[in-house]
């Protein structure tokens, strides 16, 4: 009568079959991980009936694996679980900061990095942080799997690169060496329980002399999608991450931004603040590398 259905498949194959069946029948199906975005939308802006496909019973999307070269984070792992993992906190302090900023303790008990990514909000906190660490999306398709860099996964406000019948399994992150560290900062008027007005994730690699040899900068909430800002990275590489370099990277972020004015902030404000966040985040990441060495 309500037109809603709930499915809890137990394998990737079963999930893909279910999604495929719905697509072929022209029925709407929506993947459910933590549900912290889906349930809110269901009650407000988007009340149309659909099948909810709960993927939390799949082993693959709950898999966390720290390998020698790569780390795999299953798409449905709640951020609270990630934050409690000491190894992840050591390897990706910035990404974990971002995951720790998603909503409240209660939200973190459910919300997943994969869900944050698929929801494709311009303000999703983990997206710039994932971009900064060079994460790639691992996607199950009818014929196997495919991978996409995070910055190519989100294609617009609320839109992602998954095509009908595909499922995001998780994220593959290059494992950083001791000379690399990341950081994430976002700005919100409240300390918690808020949506980013601007966000910036960075990752920097320093050589023994303290010169930056590689950098990645992702910004969020200042454009329809989170962006990889190569100009900001270029401003950092080859410098000692001194004030001038930080200012240049910040300026690059501000000019890469194309924000809107809304209830959360003005375009002008967002443009300025994303530059401030970049400067501060690079400083934090740099200090993290140096602290490793000390």
């Amino acid at each position: 009568m309500t037109g809603f259905a709930y499915h809890a498949p137990t394998s990737v194959a079963e999930t893909l079959a279910l999604l495929g069946d719905h697509a072929r029948a022209g029925r709407r199906a929506q993947v459910l991980a933590g549900g912290t975005d889906v349930l809110v939308q269901l009650r407000g802006v988007d009340r149309t009936p659909r099948a909810l496909v709960d993927i939390k019973g799949l082993a693959e999307v709950n898999r966390l694996h720290v390998g020698a070269d790569h780390v795999f984070i299953g798409a449905a792992i709640p951020s609270a679980h990630l934050n409690e993992n000491a190894e992840l906190a050591r390897l990706y302090p910035g990404l974990m900061e971002a995951a720790d900023l998603i909503g409240s303790t209660q939200i973190q008990g459910r919300a997943s990095v994969g869900g944050n990514l698929c929801n494709a909000s311009p303000a999703g906190d983990t997206i710039p942080a994932l971009i900064a660490v060079g994460a790639r999306c691992v996607i199950a398709t009818a014929s196997g799997t495919r991978e996409l860099p995070v910055e190519a996964f989100v294609t617009g406000v609320g839109r992602n690169a998954l095509v009908s019948g595909e499922l995001l399994l998780g994220l593959s992150l290059p494992r950083p060496g001791a000379a690399t560290a990341d950081a994430y900062l976002r700005f919100t008027p409240r300390t918690e329980m808020d949506i980013a007005v601007a966000g910036c994730g960075v990752s920097v690699t320093l050589d023994a002399g303290g010169v930056c040899t590689a950098a990645r900068v992702g910004i969020g909430a200042v454009a329809p999608t989170a962006l990889l800002v190569e100009a900001a990275a270029a401003a950092l590489v080859g410098t000692r991450l001194d004030e001038a370099a930080l200012n240049a990277a910040g300026a690059a972020c501000s000019s890469a931004a194309s924000p809107i004015t809304d209830k959360r902030g003005t375009a002008d404000y967002r443009r300025k603040v994303v530059g401030v966040l970049c400067r501060r985040a690079v400083g934090i990441a740099r200090d993290r590398v140096l602290a490793h060495r000390a």
């Binding site: 809890a8 809110v40 709960d54 008990g109 459910r110």
Partner: peptide
């Protein structure tokens, strides 16, 4: 609020703090 923004419906699910308004009843199985 029913949108996960106030915490008045906080419950524990397997010991983990969640908002009951953001969990489907079906998920509690």
């Amino acid at each position: 609020c029913s949108t996960g923004d106030c915490g008045a419906c906080s419950v524990l699910m397997d010991g983990r703090l969640v908002c009951a308004c953001l969990v489907l009843a079906a998920e509690a199985g």
